[in-house]
Write a protein that binds this DNA or RNA. Structure first.
Length: 561
RNA sequence: UGAGGAGUCGCCUAAUUGGUAAGGCACCUGACUCUGGAUCAGGGCAUUGAAGGUUCGAGUCCUUCCUCCUCAGCCA
């Protein structure tokens, strides 16, 4: 009943599937997520993963995880391991349906041989350059290769010998015999097999010929009984070839390829080539750098799988190219963390504050709510004393009108504690820098006490100097300064050096001393943070996942950006 | 310039398949608040890429035009 509201919005792929189920064309859906293990998964893959596994889940079908590992030159086990970890972390399970295109190499070879025998494929001995020259252009048809009419017997022999390793790389390729005049360049006798003397990360030296994507993918789908083969828009032009191969082989089943628009996110790049360049060029600290749009980057940054899944659902599925505002992603992580992250006090840029009329040596244990959104999260005790740290940004000597926080002579509340008043500012006589605030407190205003209802304009977070734990805080922001770095010629130049700010003097409340890597918190009034794996004995490191919505920052930034 | 796709508020996505544009994000107001958070309540005239046409009625159908994306790897 109540779950009605959770019904996912419909989109054209769900409609296709529902039609197929209703008409009996398919009894159940079988989808697949087919990454090539040549890089780490990014948020764009997350959309595809959520789509494929989500569809299977929604309609009671199954989704396969299949590694499309037909290019040993670029692939590596490091990537297959990382990919499996990321898919699992996102919350999906392929059960025993883990496949590798490389497991089909023998069958694929047989299919290719059948094509040869049917006169639908031939061995071409043109060089790569020559093949390109023969292909023609968008406006001119291609020309037939002089080797196009080799006999079946000769093609058989040559293809056999290609496999046997009798030829050097590039000497021959196997091509489909389709139509060199087709307006679709993919149909101008596409290459099916090439010779590559490179060890494969799974098949080792077993093969020296490797099938190409267009030949491999449709047949792999077919062998697995995939019903709906969902891919991105750039493969639209390949669909005729996908269908041609299956038709030419008269396969027992014929999956339907359906294309949707890939995800583009503002202020980041998504192409594998560019992500690789960021890693290899040392512009980030690795694939899991929290500034990266990789799944592992988001994980380290503190994003939750739930937030990423919700986001992927919220952007929808369509055929139109689009660029989603990162703000939409940020909305989902805030929404999720707001409900579940324990609140905690942390001072990022400490400014010392002494309460002159508070007894020296006195310490009070104040009760603090762990999560106002979740009463079950309980409460904890915070030590309060005469010397505290507050945030430097929470004090201004000469505040503008809309600044509600502390200033000389002004009163604010210290969260869960007392109302204090700034009596004096201690400054460096040389530089004029503010070194310390001398304040007074009103003992009657302790939180929860009858007289505590007095109104002040602001409530500040704080930590006790004597009790606080030192921490390193890494402030992460969008990696690029421009909305569409991908569109810039010199995209690397648009990297924002301020996307990472490391604060080494932060002080956090004592309860955080035992926080474990991966744990997430809300630093009150600042944002959501998670414990970085660099954390260890005597060293606490927190990553900022996302800031809280910040009205004051918007006021400061001036009228609407 | 060939072929294949796509154009709906600033950004995403809908629209019972011809019935009079809806939701989320973002933004702005206000209320509330011991987080300038959260929450709640409001708000913005979207001439549906453009022009014609069919129709009582068009975002949906037809025609023409414009713009954008993809394709000339022995990458996927």
């Amino acid at each position: 009943m109540a779950e009605r509201a959770a019904d996912p919005a419909s989109h054209f792929i769900r409609e296709i599937i529902e039609d197929d189920l209703r008409s009996g064309r398919h009894a159940r859906v079988v989808t697949r997520f087919p990454p090539e293990p040549n890089g780490y998964l990014h948020i764009g893959h997350a959309k595809s993963i959520c789509l494929n596994f989500g569809l299977a889940r929604q309609y009671g079908g199954v989704c396969h995880l299949r590694f499309d590992d037909t290019n040993p030159a670029k692939e590596d086990v490091e990537y297959v391991d990382a990919i499996m970890e990321d898919v699992r972390w996102l919350g999906f399970d392929w059960g025993d349906r883990l496949f590798y295109a490389s497991d089909y190499f023998e069958q694929l070879y047989d299919f290719a041989m059948r094509l040869v025998e049917a006169g639908k494929a031939y061995v071409d001995s043109l060089s790569a350059d020559e093949i390109r020259a023969y292909r023609g252009t968008f406006t001119e048809p291609g020309r037939n290769s002089p080797y196009r009419d080799r006999s079946v017997a000769e093609n058989r022999d040559l293809f056999l010998r290609m496999r046997a390793g009798e030829f050097p790389d590039g000497a021959h390729v196997l091509r489909a015999k389709i139509d060199m005049a087709s307006s679709n360049l993919n149909m101008r006798d596409p290459t099916l097999y090439r010779i590559r003397r490179i060890a494969h990360h799974r098949t080792g030296d077993q093969w020296c010929i490797y099938p190409l994507y267009d030949f491999t993918h449709c047949l792999s789908d077919m062998l697995e009984g995939i019903t709906h083969s969902i891919c991105t828009l750039e493969f639209e032009n390949h669909r005729p070839l996908y269908d041609w191969v299956l038709d030419a082989l008269d396969t027992p089943c014929h999956p339907q390829q359906i294309e949707f628009a890939r995800l583009n996110l503002s202020y980041t790049v998504m192409s594998k080539r560019k992500l690789l360049a960021l890693v290899q060029g040392g512009h980030v600290a690795g694939w899991d750098d929290p500034r990266m749009p990789t799944i592992s980057g988001f994980r380290r940054r503190g994003y939750t799988p739930e937030a990423i899944r919700d986001f992927c659902e919220s952007v929808g599925v369509a055929k139109r190219d689009s660029m989603v505002d990162v703000a939409q992603l940020e909305h989902h992580i805030r929404e999720d963390l707001n409900k579940r992250a324990p609140r905690v006090m942390a001072v990022l840029r400490p400014l010392k504050l002494v309460i002159e009329n508070y007894p020296e040596g006195q310490i009070e244990e104040l009760e603090a709510v762990n999560n106002p959104e979740d009463p079950a999260a309980g409460t904890r005790r915070l030590p309060f004393a005469r010397e505290l740290y507050i945030e430097r940004d929470d004090f201004m000597e000469d505040p503008p009108g809309k600044f509600f926080r502390l200033a000389p002579g002004r009163e604010v509340r210290l969260r869960y504690a007392y109302i204090i008043k700034c009596e004096r500012v201690v400054k460096d006589p040389e530089t004029g820098a503010v070194l310390e605030l001398r304040c007074s407190y009103d003992p009657e205003t302790r939180s929860g006490s009858p007289a505590s209802s007095r109104k002040v304009k602001a409530t500040l977070h704080w930590v006790s100097v004597a009790h606080a734990v030192a921490a390193e805080v890494r402030l992460y922001d969008r990696l690029f300064k421009v909305e569409a770095p991908e569109a810039c010629d010199d995209w690397l130049a648009t990297i924002d050096p301020a996307a990472l700010t490391v604060l080494r003097e932060a002080r956090v409340e004592p309860s955080l001393a035992t926080a474990l890597a991966g744990e997430r918190f809300q630093f009150e009034r600042q944002g959501y943070f998670c414990v970085d794996p660099d954390t260890g004995p005597g060293r606490a490191v927190f990553n900022r996942t996302v800031t809280l919505r910040d009205t004051w920052a918007r006021i400061q930034a001036g009228p609407a950006r």
